[in-house]
Nucleic acid binder design. Structure first.
Lengths: 348, 348
DNA sequence: GGTGTCATCCGTAACGTTTAGAACAGCTGC
DNA sequence: GCAGCTGTTCTAAACGTTACGGATGACACC
């Protein structure tokens, strides 16, 4: 900057003024400065600027699992609107680990990011602390319990409800749920939707039909193996996590259980490959990219509007049921020896 | 920091010394300082530190398409080793757009990142400029032509070669290739491997069997539609990009062409879902996460070792062919009316 | 007691910006 | 001719660190 000033024969203040347009400078001088900047390939140092202004034009995004294709899609949307507003994003992958999440948050904070977008687990002590300091933070996807701040998420209750309704309407009565970690708002919401639908249809939700706790394919596989060994296996399953679903389907395949002939399955999240899956999957789709966009909008307006803005903004996105071929009508006396009770049981 | 110093009744220099361990300070004082830091919840400001030291402990990672599940997996590995070394990573998604890539690079640079990891397209003017200034930069996956710097990538030639050999050994003679953008090192490498295998087997590579240029499902779909309309369609296809493959398979399904009965397909990259695909896909797997780890190692050692380190380090990872059910033996007089020439053609 | 050697500690000048306020020049109006 | 404006430019003090060089005191040695 000093070099630019010298070359253009002005002071650094003038250079700063033309860079930021923060003060009026005569056309002639401005031209000189611009030429000098060009000549020296000058780019303002965001670090120094950040130190002085307290604003870095960097936001943090922390997600629990970058390997779950849902999140990259969200990031895509978030990055899109951040980039448009000339913000950069630091990405942190917490790996489903609260301790790591907290470390990441601290790192972000000491890097002086202007705000953070986070899909976070309970309990959210670190997040609450930040929020309490009026630090711009918005939660997306997973909203910690009791969180009082901006948030964007899919209507998980509706998603769970519709998925279950779909199964019920197909004639299923013995419906199981694989629900991921229910201490997360996402999965508890989907679970609630499931319960509501079951209750409305006066169907029981059996303990042995409720499996919770895991978020990886591995746990889905375990669930699947356990489920096929049940004396009376369910005729349909709602699986609220896509990675769990993958493992579950693998277990079914290994056990020779056919979907949808022997069992109907509806999953969560839709991707390019779900329609080429075997079988093409019925899923509840959530608009992941749009979620990323909206969440980042919330964050940026919080950052620019300051904490003075409206107390707490929430956006909720509607999921959509995409019906494909992993769900089929259930006939009690259907495919002989498979759907009918005794043969069905033995076939597992 | 001033507050901490005041509370501990020492100078800021001393606080800095205990934070960084950069000078010896008596145990008693150190304890006082630590207690004060605790009491005030002091965290060093990385921005100020960065300004002073010229090192930010942030690295940039720029990828061409976060929606391609290959890259998140790479990021996972990169983040893992960066985190261990207490570096944060700024993620940039270039969206397969050279102009955007250059903007991202500039942003990273003015944020004073200590180095960047990039999978970049040709021509790599921006990258070359950085490299020329001895800025720590390592290319991964896609290595621009003539790039003289650190790089990590899969042996794409071997991947293409093995995929093609596999098809040839299954008896295929009319083999097509869907090669993505061949100006990228990845796809040109895979293409070269393909050519080599074809040449060794004295098989012709026909123009109408070579489709290049796209990286999205949409183009794969177009390729597929065009290919099934050919007078003499190929009996096997090597598709060097996973998203293109998805579109291609969709086109086949729509046209009623069955895989592997009518056509064998081998893809690139392996994911959790490839084995549940319909049909389970034969693919050449590249160790994406390990690639991320190695690339980040290269970068960090370049950063810490300075430009003084070895002239230029390269690591190459071996891909593996994962054989599943999308490839099958080709019998000239096989499945009647499908594989035999005239009927085969009509069946499309 | 003077001198030299350590071991600690502190003052302070940077790092590259922004920004408040001072300075200055050219007008206008009386 | 001078006060008062306006419009432009500059000076210099921050922002929160680090690190160089000097200061201080304790101790040992002659």
């Amino acid at each position: 900057m000093r070099d630019v000033a010298r070359l253009a024969n002005v002071s650094v203040a003038t250079v700063s003024a033309v860079v930021n347009g923060s003060a009026v400078v005569s056309a002639q001088r401005a031209a000189r400065v611009k030429k000098a900047m060009e000549a020296l390939d000058y780019h303002a140092d965001q670090i120094a600027r950040g130190l002085k202004t307290g604003r870095t034009r960097v936001v943090g995004v922390v997600i629990p699992d970058i390997t779950n294709p849902f999140y990259p899609e969200v990031i895509l949307g978030a990055e899109e609107v951040a980039g448009l507003a000339r913000y950069s994003v630091i990405l942190c992958n917490a790996n489903e680990d609260t301790a790591q999440e907290e470390r990441q948050l601290n790192a972000l904070f000491s890097h002086r990011v202007d705000g953070v977008l986070i899909a976070c687990s309970n309990p959210a002590v670190a997040v609450d602390r930040l929020l309490h300091r009026r630090f711009p933070i918005v939660c997306f996807d997973r909203i910690p319990e009791g969180f009082r701040g901006d948030a964007a998420a899919t209507d998980n209750f509706a998603g769970g409800y519709e998925a279950t309704r779909h199964l019920i309407e197909l004639g299923h009565r013995r419906i199981a749920i694989l629900a991921g970690r229910t201490e997360l708002s996402t999965h508890s919401g989907r679970m609630e939707g499931f319960r509501k639908a079951m209750q409305e249809a006066q169907l029981p939700v059996l303990d042995e039909y409720c499996r919770t706790g895991g978020m990886q394919a591995e746990t889905g596989y375990r669930f699947g193996r356990a489920m096929v060994r049940l004396a009376t296996p369910p005729s349909a399953v709602f699986c609220s996590n896509n990675k769990v679903l993958l493992g579950f389907m693998r277990a079914l395949a290994e056990a020779g259980v056919e979907c949808p002939a022997d069992i109907s399955v509806v999953g969560f999240d839709d991707f390019t490959w779900t329609e080429n899956f075997h079988p093409p999957l019925t899923v509840v789709y959530q608009p992941a990219r749009e979620l990323g966009r909206q969440a980042m909008h919330l964050l940026l307006s919080r950052i620019e509007g300051g904490a003075a803005a409206a107390e707490c903004q929430r956006v909720q996105l509607r999921p959509e049921l995409h019906v494909r071929q992993s769900t089929a009508r259930f006939e009690e006396a259907g495919r002989p020896g498979q759907i009918a009770a005794p043969g069905y049981e033995r076939s597992f």
